[in-house]
């Protein structure tokens, strides 16, 4: 469902040119649970941003659901983001002065659903993450793990087929991380494709496939890496 060919991303400032991604080739099939690993600054977030249409590649071809999305305008890209993609961030990013229901409601507002539809979806999603009884709480009244569950509910509320998570457990203790991971696994089991960036080898191990990004290039390992072995990427080789 996701296909990247020769994707490069260059950030230019007056002083420096940063090659965040270099001719990255990559594909993700429907229903996969992909863990993306790699050292800091290797380009993982940049890859997620391009995958989620938050940024455009400097060059290369990106197809989502068979559609070349690199040439679309802001409106069309926003529509696709709204309908097909859900985002989860490391630092939850709930809007502090909206209650849980209104936070989960955010993507649905841009979807143009009726109030009834939205209310039902919000309720279902908060039930799914176990916070159905706290619709009117403010984010500040929740623990970190609970906030991240709300963020997951928000990402899933519009029934996207594609979930992008950037270190979703990075700010959580291992117990909370486990709950969130379980939630992601069950969502994946229901058919949602997940791409998750993580630094945690144990979590990466549980994904169906690992992609290692190094220096802006992707290394695919079809079988999950052993949690005890530090992956040694084949430098300079990229294959999809």
């Amino acid at each position: 469902m996701l296909k990247m060919k020769n994707i490069s991303k260059v950030y230019r400032t007056e002083l420096v040119e940063t090659h965040a991604l270099r001719e990255l080739d990559l594909h993700v099939d429907e229903g996969e649970f992909i863990a993306v690993t790699g050292p800091s600054g290797s380009g993982k977030t940049t890859f997620l941003n391009i995958a989620g249409l938050l940024e455009s590649p400097s060059s290369g071809i990106y197809e989502l659901d068979g559609e070349d999305v690199s040439r679309l305008n802001d409106r069309q890209r926003s529509r696709i983001r709204n309908e097909k993609v859900g985002f989860i961030f490391q630092s939850f990013n709930l809007i502090p002065d909206l209650n849980l229901a209104d936070n989960v409601d955010v993507p649905l507002r841009y979807r143009g659903w009726s109030a009834v539809q939205r209310r039902r979806a919000v309720g279902d999603m908060l039930d799914l993450v176990g916070l159905g009884s706290r619709q009117n709480y403010l984010p500040s009244q929740l623990s970190g793990g609970q906030q991240q569950r709300v963020a997951i509910a928000r990402a899933l509320a519009g029934k996207p087929r594609f979930l992008l998570a950037d270190e979703p457990t990075g700010n959580l203790d291992s117990e909370m991380a486990e709950i969130v991971m379980k939630l992601l696994e069950s969502i994946n089991a229901e058919g949602t494709t997940i791409v998750m960036v993580t630094h945690d080898p144990d979590l990466a191990h549980r994904a169906s496939r690992n992609i290692h990004i190094l220096d802006g290039r992707a290394t695919d390992s079809a079988t999950p890496l052993s949690p005890n072995v530090t992956p040694l990427p084949e430098r300079g080789v990229a294959h999809a």
């Binding site: 926003s78 709204n82 309908e83 985002f87 809007i95 979807r111």
Partner: peptide
């Protein structure tokens, strides 16, 4: 800017 980026990620267009 944080909230705006969030809304953009959730599918808000520049126009919205």
């Amino acid at each position: 800017s944080g909230e705006v980026a969030l809304r953009r990620a959730m599918g808000a267009s520049q126009g919205a």
